[in-house]
């Protein structure tokens, strides 16, 4: 069913990592990404692997699920390996026809692959363990200080969470419109890519019209329920730091500082 699709590929569970404050996870992810670029010897991967490994184990997410997250970057990884392997100058260690593998190339290829893989898995862990709505609330809270510079932080967060709610509804509507058009002889499946793109116009127009109508009605309903922007608003589930969050914060700082000392 189209209604069941999840965005941001959240993996529902009650693990320690899932229960952490969204802000901690966001900050932790940023810190982890920075840390991955702090070192340039293979020794640096050891603590990074241990760090990521313990998060994965604590989160209780199956390895298969995480591996699936690497699928989209698989070809990128293959390209990176090929280019680095054959095109880096250095001392040749193996040679066949016009292909030469150098020691530097081997090192670079391994380095890049490991770094990119860790990067993708690491940032994936945030979306696997945090619901989109928690993430939005967390980001709103983190970026709140930007309000001083007239950045509409609350409004952007509200827009994001409404968009998330309406994605499945609009997908279903697209499906309905397409079926209605197909029933009247529209053809979305044959012809070249331009033809097919053109065939989508009669789907997009009613979809946009309906989206605007929905937006208008929703705005009215929100207003009727006293919505008047972020001022004086309270939250049903306000973000609160627990002991676990403080411990995580200390661990994150310790990790980044430690990574900085690796030669």
């Amino acid at each position: 069913m189209i209604r069941d699709i999840t965005i941001g590929q959240y993996y529902p569970s009650e693990s320690v990592i899932h229960r952490l404050d969204a802000r901690i996870k966001f900050i932790g992810t940023i810190a982890y990404v920075i840390a991955l670029f702090l070192f340039d010897t293979f020794w640096g991967f050891l603590p990074a692997l241990v760090w990521l490994g313990s998060i994965v184990v604590l989160s209780g997410i199956p390895i298969g699920f995480i591996a699936r997250g690497l699928k989209p970057i698989f070809f990128l990884l293959v390209f990176l390996v090929i280019f680095n392997l054959f095109l880096t100058p250095g001392e040749v260690i193996a040679e066949w026809w016009i292909f030469k593998i150098t020691d530097n190339g081997l090192e670079n290829a391994g380095f890049m692959t490991l770094r990119l893989t860790l990067l993708v898995i690491g940032s994936g862990m945030m979306t696997y363990t945090t619901t989109p709505s928690q993430l939005t609330t967390g980001m709103e809270s983190i970026f709140k200080p930007l309000g001083v510079f007239k950045v509409p932080v609350h409004e952007v967060a509200m827009m994001m969470s409404i968009a998330l709610r309406f994605i499945p509804i609009l997908l279903e509507e697209t499906d309905k419109i397409m079926k209605a058009q197909q029933a009247r002889g529209a053809d979305f499946e044959s012809g070249n890519i331009f033809k097919r793109a053109k065939a989508l116009i009669p789907v997009l127009v009613p979809l946009f019209v309906s989206a605007f109508r929905r937006a208008g009605e929703l705005a009215e309903a929100m207003e009727a329920r006293c919505y008047h922007g972020g001022k004086g608003r309270t939250k049903l589930h306000p973000l609160k730091f627990s002991a676990g969050d403080y411990i995580s914060l200390v661990l994150i700082i310790g990790f980044v500082v430690g990574m900085g000392f690796i030669p």
């Binding site: 619901t131 989109p132 709505s133 969470s161 409404i162 998330l164 709610r165 509804i169 929905r214 009605e217 929703l218 309903a221 929100m222 329920r225 006293c226 919505y227 008047h228 004086g232 608003r233 309270t234 939250k235 049903l236 589930h237 306000p238």
Partner: peptide, 26 residues
């Protein structure tokens, strides 16, 4: 229209939308 007046992603949070706007304590 039932769909176009629900704001939040869980039932509970949607019910809380009005009180949140009024600034009711948690």
């Amino acid at each position: 229209n039932p769909d176009n007046q629900i704001v939040a992603e869980t039932v509970e949070e949607d019910v809380a939308f009005g009180p949140e706007n009024m600034g009711i304590p948690t």
